[in-house]
Design a binder for these strands. Structure first.
Lengths: 159, 159
DNA sequence: TGTAACCTTGACGTCAACGTAATACTTACT
DNA sequence: AGTAAGTATTACGTTGACGTCAAGGTTACA
């Protein structure tokens, strides 16, 4: 019967959904929801229907959180990025497969465009946050100066 | 009757809510909602109750959007930052008021702490986005290399 | 073998940040 | 003065990203 299972169920590196949840700090609900959105699929299922993951899922969760929290992407946007990454991985591991060179080239060009677009977006965001940061730094200096003046005034009064 | 109005209603620089909306690209609903949250108050009202703004409101909207979109702050977090900024402005314009120096100093120290905290958060975010960006750049280079190799292979076949 | 802990699939609830619609008054323009 | 366009308030609807039961099957360990 173990031959029926897809995800090497006896394997020590096989994780149940609760284990992935615990390892990532997410809830099982979130993991199922993300699966529903096509962000994170289990490696396979047992006959009972139980989801089985590998440790790669944990890394993928980290990637998703990075995009979600760090860059403020919606899960739909995250999916676009991850799909591109997956596509790239597929192409790279599939490089000498039976796929036609023309087709492969087309995919690559598409990926490069996607990547460049993302890079542009990142640079834009970086620039704007940098500007904002610098403004803040200037304000901080002004505030410290005001504080020093206040203290000098006080010591002049009391001294 | 015009003497009853608070916000210099005949003034050319006085804006109705729809004008602010048009100038900022927001809806009037959003402006009223933000007002409800204490983020953006009109400069005054007409007797009819109509809200009246100045161009400062437009700048403030920009500031809110910056915090909201750029840094991914919730409107509650935005409020904290804006309140601090307002407080600073009040202190600066009010520097020789009747407020006690001790009190002013305390406020200033508090503002500096808030600002430093925000700066730290910004730097953290900047660093992480930078890392992410660099990863992407590396991947881009790899992709371009793969593309070149693909093209070289093809020209070798056909040439 | 029992049974507590875990998993499954629904399905309804929640919270932020608005959208949208209804009703009534005001402003602006002809 | 008439009327279209704008505004106010109130209130219910929506969307994303989950939380939280409920009912029932499965796993794992004593």
């Amino acid at each position: 019967m173990s031959a029926e299972d897809r995800a090497t169920p006896g394997d020590a590196s096989t994780l149940r959904i609760g284990e992935v949840a615990k390892a990532t700090g997410l809830t099982t609900r979130t993991l199922r929801y993300w699966e529903q959105l096509g962000l994170l699929a289990p490696n396979g299922h047992r006959e009972s229907g139980e989801r089985l993951y590998t440790s790669a899922a944990i890394e993928r969760v980290g990637r998703i959180r990075e995009l979600q929290d760090l860059l403020g992407f919606s899960l739909a946007e995250v999916k676009v990025v991850l799909d591109a990454e997956d596509e790239l991985e597929r192409i790279r591991s599939d490089m000498r497969s039976h796929t036609e060179p023309g087709e492969r080239r087309k995919l690559l060009v598409e990926l490069i465009a996607t990547n460049d677009k993302l890079l542009g977006r990142l640079d834009d965001t970086l620039g704007r946050i940098q500007t904002f940061r610098d403004e803040r730094a200037v304000k901080g200096k002004r505030m410290r100066k005001a504080l020093r003046e206040l203290d000098a005034e006080h010591s002049a009064t009391t001294g």
